[in-house]
Amino acid sequence: MDERTLPDVSGRPRRRDRRGRGMRGPGVVPTTPGRPALRTRRERFDAIALSVVADVDRRWQDRLGPVEYAVEDAPDVPADWDDAGVPLSALVRGTGGAPTRLVLFRRPIEHRCEGRDELEALVLTLVVEQLAELLGIDPATVDPRYEPGD
């Protein structure tokens, strides 16, 4: 008999939990082989950003023109960066044939949020403020859900 399944005094096989770590392996069985059952943090953030951007962009597409939306892990901060803080988003205005580009920086945004609701609110605030700056209008006009001070 294998030492890991020795019967205890009650006659049932005893399972060894050598270091008290508990169950090993995935807690959720994947539905598609080779693909994790749970989404990664990046996938969850991308889904939130996509839903916010799609909602706002749908309303303002006729005035915005071509805009590219992107998510990057973190901004490239130069070594001589002052202590003004890490940017959460960036807006690069388009020139000539190049479209305007709005970039959200995932890691600094996630670092400032404790839950999904806070994350959604911060992403909405950043997107609305950047698009309001691009359009030259008040952020509350861009989206009625925007609350200053978020």
Rank of each mutant, 00 (worst) to 15 (best):
Asp62Phe: 03
Glu118Phe: 04
Glu129Gln: 15
Glu43Phe: 00
Ala37Gln: 10
Asp117Pro: 06
Thr100Leu: 12
Arg93Ser: 08
Asp76Glu: 14
Ala98Glu: 15
Gly85Val: 07
Ala74Leu: 12
Arg93Leu: 12
Thr40Ile: 03
Gly25Ala: 03
Asp117Lys: 15
Pro99Val: 06
Arg41Phe: 00
Asp62Met: 11
Gly97Gln: 15
Arg24Ala: 01
Pro66Gln: 08
Arg41Val: 01
Thr40Met: 05
Thr100Gln: 10
Asp46Asn: 13
Val77Arg: 12
Pro87Cys: 12
Gln130Ile: 04
Gln61Gly: 00
Leu88Asn: 10
Val56Asn: 06
His111Asn: 14
Tyr69Ile: 08
Pro78Leu: 04
Pro33Glu: 10
Gly27Ala: 04
Ala49Leu: 05
Pro108Asp: 12
Thr100Ser: 14
Thr95Glu: 15
Phe45Met: 09
Pro26Leu: 06
Ala132Thr: 11
Arg35Asp: 00
Arg112Glu: 08
Leu64Asn: 06
Arg58Asp: 07
Ile48Glu: 09
Gln61Phe: 01
Leu50Tyr: 00
Ala90Tyr: 02
Asp55Trp: 05
Gly94Asp: 10
Val52Arg: 13
Arg42Ala: 06
Leu119Asn: 09
Pro87Phe: 09
Phe105Thr: 07
Asp82Gly: 13
Arg35Val: 08
Pro30Glu: 01
Asp73Met: 11
Ser51Val: 04
Thr31Asn: 06
Ala90Trp: 05
Ala121Val: 10
Pro33Thr: 05
Ser51Tyr: 01
Leu91Phe: 03
Ala70Leu: 12
Val123Arg: 11
Gly115Asp: 15
Arg112Met: 10
Leu88His: 11
Ala84Thr: 14
Ala37Pro: 04
Pro99Ile: 06
Glu120Lys: 15
Gly115Ala: 10
Ala90Ser: 14
Asp83Lys: 14
Gly65Cys: 09
Ala98Ile: 08
Gly115Thr: 10
Arg106Asn: 09
Val28Asp: 00
Pro26Val: 00
Gly97Glu: 14
Trp81His: 10
Gly96Lys: 13
Asp117Arg: 15
Ala79Cys: 05
Gly25Phe: 01
His111Arg: 15
Gly27Gln: 09
Val103Pro: 07
Gly85Phe: 06
Arg106Cys: 04
Ala49Cys: 03
Pro78Phe: 01
Leu88Ala: 06
Val128Cys: 12
Gly94Arg: 11
Ala98Phe: 07
Pro26Glu: 03
Arg93Gly: 02
Thr32Ile: 11
Met23Phe: 00
Asp80Lys: 07
Met23Ala: 05
Leu124Arg: 15
Asp46Val: 07
Tyr69Asp: 07
Leu91Ala: 04
Glu68Cys: 08
Ala37Tyr: 01
Val128Tyr: 07
Arg42Asn: 01
Ala132Cys: 10
Glu72Arg: 15
Arg59Asp: 06
Gln130Met: 11
Arg44Glu: 05
Leu131Met: 13
Met23Ser: 02
Phe45Lys: 11
Val128Thr: 12
Thr100Ala: 12
Ser51Thr: 07
Val128Phe: 04
Pro36Ile: 04
Gly97Trp: 11
Pro66Asp: 09
Asp82Glu: 13
Leu122Val: 10
Glu133Pro: 10
Leu124Lys: 13
Thr100Pro: 11
Leu131Ser: 07
Asp46Ile: 03
Gly85Ser: 11
Thr95Arg: 15
Val103Trp: 01
Val77Met: 08
Arg63Leu: 12
Ala121Gly: 12
Glu118Asp: 14
Glu72Cys: 06
Asp57Val: 08
Arg116Val: 08
Arg58Ala: 11
Pro108Trp: 13
Arg59Ser: 09
His111Ser: 13
Trp81Asn: 01
Ile48Asn: 02
His111Tyr: 12
Gln61Arg: 15
